[in-house]
Amino acid sequence: GIDPFTGEAIAKFNFNGDTQVEMSFRKGERITLLRQVDENWYEGRIPGTSRQGIFPITYVDVIKRPL
């Protein structure tokens, strides 16, 4: 089901994660935001896939912030 505490964002740019914990994505992908890790990073996942990880806040347009 849908978790009411998650947020939502759209990727503004392609992001290629450097490490296992970073999640790569392509511009235009819809991302579920799980939490804000710190002032620069979100943790999120791509709905319908097993992809999950952290990524820079500046790479996405936030539609709804996670609670």
Rank of each mutant, 00 (worst) to 15 (best):
Asp61Val: 15
Ile63Tyr: 07
Val60Ser: 01
Ala11Trp: 01
Gly17Asn: 04
Ala11Ile: 02
Gln52Tyr: 10
Phe15Pro: 00
Ile63Ser: 05
Gly7Asn: 09
Lys27Gly: 05
Val60Tyr: 01
Arg30Phe: 12
Arg65Trp: 15
Lys12Gly: 03
Ser24Ile: 03
Val37Thr: 05
Arg26Phe: 11
Val60Phe: 02
Asn40Asp: 12
Gly53Met: 02
Arg30Pro: 05
Gly48Lys: 06
Phe55Ser: 00
Thr58Asn: 11
Gln20Leu: 13
Asp3His: 12
Arg45Met: 12
Gly28Leu: 03
Pro4Phe: 14
Arg26His: 11
Thr32Ala: 08
Thr58His: 12
Gln52His: 13
Thr58Leu: 11
Gly7Leu: 08
Val37Phe: 07
Pro4Asn: 13
Gly44Gln: 00
Glu39Leu: 09
Phe25Cys: 02
Glu22His: 13
Phe5Gly: 13
Gly48Ile: 02
Arg45His: 10
Gln52Pro: 01
Thr32Leu: 11
Gly1Ala: 12
Gly44Pro: 01
Glu22Lys: 10
Gly44Glu: 00
Asn14Thr: 11
Gln52Ala: 09
Val62Leu: 06
Phe13Val: 09
Pro66Glu: 08
Pro56Asn: 03
Lys27Gln: 11
Ile57Met: 10
Val37Gly: 01
Pro47Glu: 14
Asp3Gln: 12
Leu67Phe: 06
Phe5Leu: 13
Asn14Gly: 06
Ala9Arg: 02
Lys12Gln: 06
Ala9Pro: 00
Glu39Thr: 09
Thr32Ser: 08
Gly53Gln: 01
Leu67Glu: 15
Ser50Glu: 12
Ser50Gly: 12
Glu43Tyr: 15
Tyr59Ser: 09
Ile46Gly: 01
Gly53Ser: 01
Glu39Lys: 11
Ser50Ala: 11
Gly17Arg: 05
Asn16Val: 13
Arg45Phe: 14
Thr49Glu: 06
Asp3Gly: 11
Trp41Phe: 09
Ile2Leu: 13
Ser24Arg: 05
Lys64Asn: 08
Thr49Lys: 03
Pro47Gly: 08
Arg65Val: 14
Val21Pro: 09
Arg30Leu: 11
Gly7Cys: 15
Ile2Cys: 15
Leu34Thr: 08
Arg30Ile: 12
Val21Ile: 12
Leu33Ile: 11
Glu29Met: 04
Gln36Thr: 06
Phe5Gln: 15
Trp41Ser: 07
Ile46Glu: 01
Gln36Asp: 03
Asp3Arg: 08
Glu8Cys: 15
Ala11Lys: 00
Tyr42His: 03
Thr19Cys: 13
Gly1Phe: 10
Arg51Leu: 04
Gly7Ile: 09
Leu33Met: 06
Ile57Thr: 09
Gly1Asn: 12
Leu67Val: 15
Ile54Pro: 02
Ile2Asp: 15
Gly7Phe: 11
Leu67Trp: 05
Asp38Met: 07
Ala11Leu: 01
Phe5Thr: 13
Glu29Phe: 02
Gly1Lys: 08
Thr49Asp: 05
Lys64His: 07
Gly48Pro: 05
Ile31Arg: 00
Tyr59Gly: 03
Val21Tyr: 14
Lys27Ser: 08
Gly1Asp: 13
Glu29Leu: 02
Ile2His: 13
Phe15Gly: 00
Thr32Gly: 05
Tyr59Ile: 05
Glu29His: 02
Ile54Glu: 03
Gln20Lys: 12
Val62Ile: 10
Leu34Met: 09
Thr49Ser: 09
Leu33Arg: 02
Val62Met: 07
Gln36Ser: 07
Asn14Asp: 15
Phe25Ala: 02
Asp18Glu: 15
Gly17Asp: 03
Pro66Tyr: 04
Thr6Tyr: 14
Gly53Cys: 02
Phe25Asp: 01
Gly7Val: 09
